[in-house]
């Protein structure tokens, strides 16, 4: 809310209390578009650098190799392969998890880059590098514009 200009320094007041520190990031220009497409249309988007002939996922507005501005957006397949994975038994504070989580780096055909995400509907000992997987989305009403709008990737 705008306030009237203060012209007397004596009118300024100190504020007392605690200042909780937290961060509120922005999606950025590329992130806004990527997550809006995911939320509204359930589509994974990449962006192409015509100079370097690379399709970047996650998408971005510039090419880190040639510094071109990137404007050529395209949908990428929702199927990929497990590039590598881990079965994590502890949380961020080092506590043991009741159920270990499988997290993988998923790469997509013809795409430079990939996405980090959980694997679901698969036992840990059945996962292998090179395994084809498919994106499983939350229902449209539950999607909020987050990487967690993707529930997990499952074996094809």
């Amino acid at each position: 809310m705008p306030v009237d200009k203060v012209t007397q320094v004596a009118q300024t007041k100190p504020l007392h209390g605690e200042i909780p520190v937290y961060a509120q990031y922005t999606f950025g220009i590329a992130g806004e578009k990527f997550f809006r497409e995911l939320k509204d249309n359930g589509r994974l988007m990449g962006v192409k650098c015509p100079e370097c002939n690379l399709i970047y996922v996650p998408p971005r507005i510039y090419c880190e190799r040639c510094f071109s501005e990137l404007t050529e957006w395209l949908e990428i397949p929702n199927r990929g392969v497990v590039h590598t994975f881990t079965v994590s038994h502890i949380d961020l504070d080092g506590n043991r998890l009741k159920e270990p989580v499988i997290v993988a780096l998923v790469k997509f055909d013809g795409v430079y880059g990939g996405l980090v995400h959980r694997l679901g509907r698969v036992e840990a000992d059945k996962v292998s590098i090179g395994m084809p997987v498919e994106m499983v989305l939350k229902s449209k009403t539950k999607r909020v514009g987050s990487i967690l709008d993707i529930d997990y990737f499952k074996p094809v």
Binding site: Y25, F27, G31, F35, P58, H83, T84, F85, T86, S88, I90, D91, L92, V103, L105, L115, V116, H117, R118, I129, S146, I147, L148
Partner: peptide, 20 residues
């Protein structure tokens, strides 16, 4: 936005590299 919401841990990265 693409990594933190998953609860990403440093250990995952090392595990991914070692596995690969």
């Amino acid at each position: 936005y693409t990594e933190s919401p998953l609860g990403t841990s440093l250990l995952w990265f090392f595990a991914w590299e070692m596995n690969r």
